[in-house]
Design a protein around this nucleic acid. Structure first.
Lengths: 144, 144
DNA sequence: TTTAAATAGGATAAAAACATCCGAAATAAA
DNA sequence: TTTATTTCGGATGTTTTTATCCTATTTAAA
């Protein structure tokens, strides 16, 4: 469904949100440990999220990654997915056809579109805030 | 969403169904041409579908691939997807966590499960017959 | 029985995804 | 100003996915 990079990116963003809400910056080492991901690879993904203006990085001593508090509630899962995996998941054809559309649909088009649109809707209406909150309350988890 | 192999496998199955309903066997060359896929790679996938007992192959002169007519209506998309991509799409965690479940859910679990279950339901209730029919009537297409 | 036409399957190659390493650049604090 | 700490970014390596090639095996028909 999502690439590994995207999975790591989502988890990392949530973890950063959890910490930023407590005014703590975190670094790739802490993040990778918490979300159970390869550190250097995770660092690359964090750079990507910074370039896409989803998280903020602060260089130098006492630096790290953070998300502005006001942003935590407004950032949607769809933005993270789109930043890392692009928009194929939102608009792409279920059978990978470049040219599939309502006028000239692939055999799966109608049925697939229903599911894809629901996924899209879910990603566009799920905020970092609610995900971070469920982690903070101990309701959900990043790892075993 | 699905691997390339799975996309080719679905399209190939539909094309074989269309032809089998007219008592025609087809070979990898015809199939690859029709569904716009690499021929040798497609042949491998066909072997996989044969091993999974979804399609039938007939070796030797005048051989080729076919699907028993009675089977066309009973084969579900889910069987093809499962044969090629396995069951991760049906049961896997949205964040790739091996251990995610209702008791110890990942942050996306509840919201993802809704979408994943709808995808699963769609795949389990879509038959090769209806897909093949939509191609036969010229309502849907494999390529540009 | 021979031949031509098919699928089967192993070996190999190319591309993409996943991952690591290391030095450069930035910055806060000593 | 120096030092320690941190992100940035390029180079490189590994694994998986995608794709090709070639030979063996099977089988219908001549």
């Amino acid at each position: 469904m999502f690439s590994k990079a995207c999975e790591y990116g989502i988890k990392a963003s949530i973890f950063i949100a959890v910490n930023s809400s407590q005014n703590r910056r975190v670094n790739p080492k802490e993040i990778a440990k918490e979300i159970n991901s390869p550190q250097a690879f995770t660092a690359k993904i964090l750079q990507d999220l910074v370039r896409h203006n989803i998280i903020k990085s602060v260089k130098g001593a006492h630096g790290g990654f953070e998300i502005e508090k006001e942003k935590i509630a407004s950032v949607k899962l769809s933005q993270i997915v789109n930043a890392i995996d692009g928009d194929a998941i939102f608009n792409g054809c279920g059978l990978g056809m470049e040219t599939c559309n309502a006028k000239r649909p692939c055999p799966m088009h109608d049925k697939f579109k229903v599911v894809r649109d629901e996924l899209k809707h879910m990603l566009e209406h799920t905020t970092l805030e609610e995900l971070a909150f469920s982690v903070q309350t101990g309701e959900t988890f990043f790892r075993v």
